[in-house]
Structure formats: C-alpha cells, structure tokens
Write a protein that binds this DNA or RNA. Structure first.
Lengths: 342, 342
DNA sequence: TCAAAAGTGTTATCCTTACACCCATGT
DNA sequence: ACATGGGTGTAAGGATAACACTTTTGA
C-alpha cells in the first residue's frame, strides 16, 4: 500500500503598503488556528495549468484576483517530525504573487502580516536589527560550539557567510539560508514544534507559520530581492502613477535597506525606468512631488532593467578582515549606496 | 473518476568537455527511440526527499553519481496536443546537475549531446549564429505578420526583446524566452509534433527531444548562465586544478560568448576566485600555463562571487535605435567584454 | 627562429558614490 | 520665516574595456 500523494499549491502574496511589505495569510481551520499561506490541492481534472489552479484557490480563499505570478519552488521532503501522525505526504508547489494594495480580503478571514514580523532580522532600514546580536548570534554561537571541533568550525563559517558576521559582507538575498540556519539551530519556533517540543520560541525569532510556510516565504523574499535588481517588478506593487519617493520606499521595504535618496533618483531616471507625467502630487509637508509612471520601452532598451541595490561586489571597506572576537561592532552588510541609517 | 497523477523527476546533467557544453540524454525505449533526459517517477514510499529520488534515478539509468544538484522548475501543464491519447497527467520536477567530465555512462546507453546542437542560436562564440538570420528571423517575422495589426506589433516587440533584434540588446540568459517563442511560432520540431504534424523541422532549428525536455533544458541553460555571474558554479565542471584558459573556455562554452582574454584573467584573479599553485601544465603549443585552484575563502569575502559576463547594462553602443528595416546588420548582443569574434 | 599561448602594464571611459546646494509648498 | 521633503549639479573614486607588449615553451 503506497502513501497517498497530494499536490498542494501555495501562494506567497506580497503587497507593499506605505513602507511595510506585507504578506497575505489565512487562519487555518484546524489545529490551534495557526496562520498559513493560502493554499489548496491541485485538481488534475479541473485545472488545466498549475498557475490557473493557484489563481482559483486564491480567489476562493481570499477573494483576490492575482496579477503577476511566478513559480518559486517545489517542496517535497517528507514532512518533518510530526512523528506518529503518519499523514499523507504532500508535495507543495509554491508561487510568488505581487498585488497592488491591501485590497479588501478582510471579508474572507484572510489578512495581511508585516513580512518583518516573520523575519525581524531581515529589516536593516533602521540599521542593524538588534535581534541579531541580542538573540540570534548567541543562539547560533551556542549551536556551533555544540558540534565537534571540525564541525563547529564549519558551522561558524556558515554562520559568518549567511549572516554577514565576522567581517564577511552580508547578502540581502540569502533570506532562505538564514532561515534554514536558524531552523537547524532550533532558534525558530518551527523547529521546536516539528520535533514535538512545546517550549515557546525566544522573542525576536519571529512569528511562526503553519507547516513549512515560513520557509516558503523566505524563498519568496530572497527571490523578490534578487529580482528587484534585474526586472522591473516593483512596479507591480505600485499604483500606475507614483512619486519617486513612493518608489524608493517600496524598494527599501522589500530590500530591507535604506537607500541614498539623491542617487536613487538619478539611477532610476537614467536607467530609463520611469517617465514623468506633468502632474504633481500635493503631499503632506514639503514641496509637491512629480508623478511618474513606469516606462515600458525600457524592456526593449536594456537587457535587465532593475533598480540597482548595493552589495554584490567587493569586500567591506575596512580592510582585510576583523579580528575573530570582534563581532558585535561589525555592520556586516555593505554600506555602498546605503544611507547612514539614523 | 479522476485522472491519475504521476510525479516525474527529470535531470539536466551538464558537463563541459574541452570547449563544448554537453548534456546527458538517454534513448527512450518506446516510441521511435526519441532522445530524452534521464527521468523517472517519484516513489513516495522509498524516497525521503525529492533530491535523493533524483539521484537514485540517475544512478540506475546512467551509472552516474551526481555532485552539485539544484532544483529548476516544476512543469505541470496538461501535456500539449497528444489529442485522443488521454494519457495520465504528469507533473515533472526538473533538476540541474553539474558533473566534472564525460565519465563513462556509455555502458548504460546514455550519452552526451552538445548543448548547442539543441540550441544552435545560443552559441555566439563564432559571432552571430547564422541560423538566426537564415532560418529563425524569417520564420518569426512570418509568424508575427500572421497576426492582426495590434497583435502583430506585440509579437514583433517580443521577438526584438528576446532575440535582441532591431537594436534591442540581447540577453544571453533568456534562453527559455527564445525557445518558447520559437515553439509558439512553430519553428521547432516539438511544436509540429505536439500538434500531430509529421513535417520535418527546418534545419537549423536544433535537435528535437522527447516531451517537453528541450524546454526544460532551456530553463537549465538560462539558469546556469545567470548563476555564473554570482555563484562559483563553473568550478563544479572543472577538475580541481586547471589553467586560466581552461576556466575561460568553460565559461565561454556555457555563456556562448567569446571573452576578452586579458581582462578575463585579471577579473578572475582580482575577484579572488582562484589561487595559483606553483605547478604548471606543460601544454600543447605555447608557453606552459600555471595551474590554479578554486579559492574557497572567496565565499566569506564576497557576497556574490561569480565570473562577470558582459551584458546587463546599457543600450548598445551605436546610439538610439536602428532603423526599423535594418535588422540583419545589427549584432544585437552587447559587445563589452566580448572579443571581436573571429 | 618562429608560432602559439601565457601573462603583465597602462590608459581611457563610464558608472557609482558622495557631497553641496537650490526649489516649492504648508504651517 | 522655517521646516520638510522634492529635485539638480558636480567632482572623486573605482571598475571595466581596449590596447600594447613581454615571456616561455615546442616545432
């Protein structure tokens, strides 16, 4: 007798309202009402394509009509832990969708969550997130030390690389690597839960989601951050007309970084990504801003139009490498196009 | 009664021998002995993870033990055409694997194919591939004209963008976009076959594979080309010790471009990607070359270590845009780090 | 001695970064 | 008037691209 195999489709639906990136979640009927991504099984008879199936599910569960959709990853490892339950194995195909606003999915019980409530260590807009040094780094260090000599060194190297500690420049796109590391180190609630534990996760380790949904979200955020660089995806999240500040804040919200304003504007304009409409937005405080729109022609002009984030190049400015003991002081992430972060 | 759903795992196994990128294919038992990627169904009871399942299948079908493996994409649309057959629907999860050499999979009936026999239009190392202007561009133009006025213009724009015609700079990574376009335009054998047609594909449109395997390969090549830029994946394809020329030729083989030698060497070295061993390779013809090895420490030093290919930036050098009629003369792809192509 | 490939040095150009400053509105 | 955010100019630094040239082997 073979294990029944169900194909699930999950959606990471992202919007940016004001300055916060949000993700749509539903409350699961069963269990303790855990939060979960909208998802449902594939019906091979009805759904002609996977993407259509996904759109259907999202419509019925949240009332939302999706626009931009992209496949993320297929997760198929046997569900961790859950020992004894012996539930049907699920293969889940995850998608990323971008929508323009917090619409009105409230009626259906779905709601928006701040992405950085799930990943507090990913938001560097106010400078280095305090959770890293206060909670995560110590937990990770203990975990690394817990292994034998060889393995401990390997773990430490991995921590340095993915979190950008110890003089290693960080990479904003390695969201999944960071989450997986925290999972392995049992620093996030899911790894405790999946082992049948009952202890509460430490504060600062972020909101727990059902199943492996936070992992899926980590893949989504990493992918989205990467894509910002070379595809004009931000515009999927903005209204047709927007000011350059709105654009910048949306990018910053996703990248989790504060960017240098003057250069941002110039880069965007000289990249040909936007064009001014004569109209201006009379704003709160300060000079009215011009309204811009996305310039579609850029697709013909450039092979990979994107917004240009810092990172990706050389080693950090301060010379070779910091002393092994001196971790807390390091900013980790590169500071090229970054604002001083106040 | 519901359609049976089978989960298939497919592997795009890539190696680079001398100067040609190769992919491993097997001859399918049924049908007319079509060539196909190694693949097999997932056994939910035996295989704990998808990746392990894949490794098992590859081992039994080709005798190969895989090293680097990465998930590519999950294809699940109802199999095109095949009208009447009403076969079980298959969901196939595709993986990319990199191996070091053409091993000895001959015994098992598997064999290596030159990737550019499948995508002749992707190899720009000898300059612009003649197939583009001789075969593909005319076919595509006819296809575009076949649509109504509005749609025809849209099709033409799409052609320009993905093939880099008409002054639009090309992007070596859009391998899938180009293949899909050719499929839609019925320029490749698969689209004829999937519609039940029997006519032979035009010469220059590349070797046909079973099912959607060439599409999968297109995804793989595009992904690999992209990854070259920011992850040290080439080294998975090279022996532990190699000369800089070997490295360059491997990169060129995958990127389908010829690179400027002097700058390539400098970039690689100053990126800290390799380190010299004192040893030298006494070669055929010319001065002996030093043997290098991959410098693992680069992972700690840089957020995204890769080889730096041309492209990705601005519009082509020759000013605004070429006249609409003047297509054949355009090089299309950018020529920044490119050799004059002789 | 010559061909072929390896390897080095130098310069021009262009993108990115940083800094300084002016503009337009609401209170 | 001044605070606030919008918007522009310009110069320094750094990375790439292009070019010229030297070194070391085998035939």
């Amino acid at each position: 007798m073979s294990t029944p195999l169900v194909i699930g489709l999950s959606a990471v639906i992202v919007a940016v309202t004001d300055e916060t990136p949000r993700v749509l979640v539903v409350r699961r009927p069963g269990a303790a009402g855990e939060l979960a991504l909208p998802s449902g099984p594939l019906d091979p008879d009805r759904d002609r394509t996977l993407e259509l199936a996904l759109r259907n599910w999202v419509r019925t569960q949240t009332g939302l009509e999706l626009g931009y959709v992209e496949q993320l990853y297929t997760f198929g490892d046997r569900v961790r832990g859950r020992s004894g339950e012996e539930e049907a194995r699920e293969l889940s195909i995850a998608y990323l969708a971008l929508v323009r606003e917090g619409g009105a999915p409230e009626a259906t019980g779905a709601g928006w969550l701040d992405v950085y409530d799930l990943f507090p260590w990913e938001d560097w807009r106010q400078g280095r997130p305090p959770e890293i040094d206060r909670v995560l780094a110590p937990l990770l260090a203990r975990w690394a030390d817990g292994a034998g000599g060889e393995a401990a060194a390997a773990r430490r190297e991995r921590i340095d690389i993915v979190f950008g500690l110890g003089g290693t420049p960080g990479d904003g796109e390695r969201v999944l690597d960071r989450y997986e590391l925290l999972y392995e180190a049992r620093a996030v609630g899911e790894s405790v839960r999946d082992r049948g534990g009952r202890s509460r996760p430490a504060p600062g380790t972020g909101q727990v989601l059902a199943l492996d949904h936070r992992r899926i979200l980590a893949v989504a955020l990493g992918r989205l951050r990467g894509k910002l660089r070379y595809r004009p995806v931000v515009f999927e999240l903005l209204p047709p007309l927007f000011t350059l500040s709105q654009l910048q804040r949306a990018v910053e919200a996703l990248a989790g970084l504060r960017l240098h304003q003057q250069n941002f504007r110039r880069l965007i304009e000289q990249a040909g990504l936007v064009e001014g409409t004569g109209r201006r937005e009379t704003r709160t405080g300060g000079r009215p801003a011009e309204l811009f729109r996305f310039r579609r022609e850029v697709l013909r002009e450039r092979p990979a139009p994107g917004v240009g984030l810092p990172g990706r190049r050389e080693a950090p400015p301060g010379g070779e490498r910091e002393g092994a003991g001196e971790r807390a002081g390091s900013r980790g992430m590169r500071a090229r196009n970054r604002e001083p972060a106040g």
